[in-house]
Design a binder for these strands. Structure first.
Lengths: 332, 332
DNA sequence: CCCGATATTGGATACGTTTTCATGCATCTC
DNA sequence: GAGATGCATGAAAACGTATCCAATATCGGG
């Protein structure tokens, strides 16, 4: 029962043609109709599946695309990954996934592993900066950034949510409700968002109300709790990610701050549980899936042209976690 | 600036040895100390990285391992994936991920793609049944199931949470609180859990209180809402997954059923938002990450022996979504 | 000092594919 | 009808590695 898989030679011999012809027929090259049909028949009959191994070696590149993201456990990244997988599947390409934990060193390691595998197309949510990415790009990797870009990597196409508009909308909404002391709770690799926050706040900005956590849940919780304790005078918080938002809700509850009476909260990224919270959470929704899909699309047809990045719209979804300053509003 | 990557030949020539020697040194074969050192020096100097392409073709198998799961967006599966990735990374192996959407056909397609890639080791959360998996196994894929097994695939090692104990604990807890009309809200591919539920309920079982949804959020919500409307006399629900639990919470809220006063809820799988809900959700926690890690471990050293599967413990985490029958208990 | 055993080495081969190139054949043009 | 043009085809050469096998060098024992 040790049937070796049929190779292209088997097909060629059985069909009475040369291997080159078989290869051409299967790759869509030119061949006479009768030859084509005979080859196809024999191939189907032998259940021949071309080996990607041989092809990869010959073309010196593995077909697949690499996907690097900070944490597959985070639903946002999970949705980005889902988008990439969907696109890759429709193109029949395998996807090699690696998680960086937002650690540039680990990221570099993974890139090394991918190159060893012959992967030459990469979708990444980058952790490292331009310096860290330089060797990778010089090596000829077709790269597309997703969700965020990297300092000094301006020439790499990126598929981003419109953070600028998102942050502005959030800040405008909060200030419109009368809030002045608005805190920003940020995560790693979001210099862009933070900069826009400062810009949108203008003269209202208070550097003490800006806290940046590392990637972990603990770190996020510590940052939120520390902020709330240290500055009990703040009236609103913008959480720059669902992990930060989660931490904010937990810390607020622990400190007996009621949302939205004592504090208004807007969270970046809409997640299923935002509606389950009470009060339900007002969020800036990002098209995570689309981000992944578009990024994969770009990287798949990326060889020839060098397309400029894409900016996808965000959306403010008003639920129950924000109230006018000084007013008590009953949660939905 | 078009530096081709160094090959094993370059190393051999520069070091003044044969390619065979280089290969041996790098693969841990025997070589004289001085030769070994010279080869290693030259390799480092040329920044030589062996091409997985060549090796794969030669050994007729791609190094990596395949990972098949229903939905990368679901945090539970995300955590399983994280475990697999962690283990694979420590072994330096790439992981090719595919999502099946709980569709056996799509699963089979993905397996075909993996085999084409030369992948011969697979961790899967299976969708199809034994019949669907038979060809795969006959093809010599080293397979380990995670989270659930498949009908008629008894001989495939599987890493599972102890569903039996989990369901029993949940049912015992609920009956201990005085509940008699307990509903079960199930998802796809969980015949095992459902069977144990029937068994644990014994004479109390009411087939009308058992509903099985398909994988989607919509389907889960519809199932929950339908159940609650059709049988307003039920007093407790066991949700067989976090998606089902989410749907139950939403449907309950929509129908103005207050947890836990009007209905007690236990959800399978502990997720971060279980604590954010109000009331916070009582859950059966499963070691998702461990499941993935152990499965990957098994598949990595699986070639030789055929290890029997692993059963990992579950844990009842009591929070605020269950109350004694007929009693009103204030949420935490 | 010689012979056999052992350790180290390099040449050659095969893995399965794509692609180049030359060949044969038929058709077209003048 | 002869040369030119085009197409279909197959032989052969890579791609980069691991491994088989024979050859050589080293060493110990008699």
């Amino acid at each position: 029962m040790n049937m070796r898989r049929a190779t292209i030679r088997d097909v060629a011999e059985t069909a009475g043609v040369g291997v080159a012809t078989v290869s051409r027929v299967l790759s869509g090259g030119s061949a006479s109709p009768e030859t084509r049909e005979r080859v196809l028949t024999v191939a189907a009959q032998l259940d021949y599946r071309p080996s990607a191994l041989g092809r990869n070696l010959r073309q010196r590149r593995s077909g697949g695309i690499g996907l690097l993201l900070p944490d597959i456990t985070d639903t946002f990244y999970g949705r980005v990954a889902d988008g990439v997988l969907a696109c890759a599947r429709s193109a029949g390409e395998p996807v090699i996934v690696g998680t960086t934990g937002d650690d540039p060193e680990r990221e570099a390691e993974l890139i090394g592993m991918l190159m060893e595998q012959g992967v030459d197309r990469l979708v990444a949510i980058p952790s490292g900066d331009g310096e860290s990415w330089a060797p990778t790009l010089r090596a000829g990797l077709t790269t597309v950034f997703a969700h965020r870009t990297s300092a000094g990597c301006g020439d790499i196409p990126a598929v981003l949510a419109d953070d600028r508009a998102g942050v502005r909308t959030a800040v405008d909404y909060l200030t419109g409700l009368g809030h002045r002391r608005i805190a920003y709770l940020g995560g790693p690799g979001q210099a862009q968002r933070l900069a826009v926050f400062r810009e949108a706040m203008g003269p209202l900005v208070d550097e003490e109300l800006i806290v940046v956590a590392r990637g972990s849940r603990d770190s996020a919780y510590a940052a939120a709790a520390g902020l709330f304790q240290h500055r009990p005078d703040l009236t609103a918080v913008l959480a720059g990610g669902n992990l930060l938002g989660e931490a904010a809700v937990l810390a607020a509850r622990e400190l007996d701050l009621r949302l939205p009476r004592d504090m208004s909260l807007i969270m970046f990224d809409d997640v299923p549980w935002a509606e389950l919270c009470s009060p339900s959470l007002t969020v800036i929704a990002q098209p995570a899936q689309d981000i992944g899909y578009r990024a994969a699309e770009l990287v798949l047809r990326g060889g020839g042209r060098r397309p400029r990045g894409v900016l996808l719209p965000t959306e403010l979804i008003v639920r129950g976690s924000c109230a006018a300053r000084g007013t008590s509003r009953s949660p939905r």
